[in-house]
Design a binder for these strands. Structure first.
Lengths: 134, 134
DNA sequence: CTTGACTCTGGACCACGGTCCAGACTTTAG
DNA sequence: CTAAAGTCTGGACCGTGGTCCAGAGTCAAG
């Protein structure tokens, strides 16, 4: 059931052709076969796999993470899939926390800034110019 | 008052020497002068500016943002500084929102996954394999 | 003066996730 | 049949923010 060319595959998965070849170079997705001409042929399994990659990316997994997930799903190891998802969740928590710290810092400065007057009275500039390093 | 070599400057600002030169290439920081030998010399103004860059980065500004901030602070335009900070705040809000969406997706999946059993019953794999594209 | 530490330049290289290109070949529609 | 559309390969290039290197020259301490 290798009925798709690379262009059809890419369109149906919503990615660029070059991206498909890039994934192949990076061991994420191989064609089901090749024509005598060298043209890649893909089937439903590859389309599913490509969509899997797209969704996992949307969930914040890196391509390396996804390589791991794909090999785990091949192994059918539910426990390890869950662990990987939990680890990624913790990672995302950390990223959110860091951004929130940055946000609070900025928010405080923006609130304190009158938006006019002399540069010396701008708390944003003053904070950036402060002598004590954050 | 050009009393610092590049190494001293870097140490006192807490960055790498290469980073100082990188900033110079990217129009963020120039030496106050050069010795006849070509050695860069920096003063207090450059040290402050470098620390400004470091702090602004910690607040989530890109180097391009910082170039803008530096030129604004030269202009002493408090209103525009505040606008830039507000824009960055909105940007950080958006990044947090996106990560939170991702987090909720993952959280739901992790909660629903029993952590054992057949691969077909793993909601994480099922979501990634779903026919309907997210 | 010597030695070791410092600095200079230009350019290569890293991760990340692609994107784009040329030049050749193949497939498909009409 | 032809012409257009699709695909092939290998490699260059993008942005972001640096890091590292070689080979040469310089500065400071003893």
């Amino acid at each position: 059931m290798s009925n798709l060319g690379i262009g059809q595959l890419a369109r149906r998965a919503g990615v660029a052709i070059d991206t498909v070849r890039y994934y192949e170079r990076n061991d994420l997705l191989s064609p089901a076969g090749r024509l005598a001409s060298g043209y890649r042929r893909y089937g439903e399994a590859e389309l599913k796999r490509l969509r899997f990659i797209r969704r996992a990316k949307a969930l914040g997994f890196t391509l390396e993470d996804i390589r791991g997930l794909l090999s785990l799903s091949d192994e059918r190891s539910v426990a390890r899939i869950k662990q990987a998802a939990e680890a990624k969740l913790a990672d995302i928590d950390r990223r959110i926390d860091e951004l929130e710290r940055i946000r609070e810092g900025l928010r405080t400065l923006v609130k304190a800034c009158p938006g006019h007057g002399r540069a010396e009275s701008c708390p944003i500039l003053n904070a950036l110019n402060a002598e004590d390093a954050p």
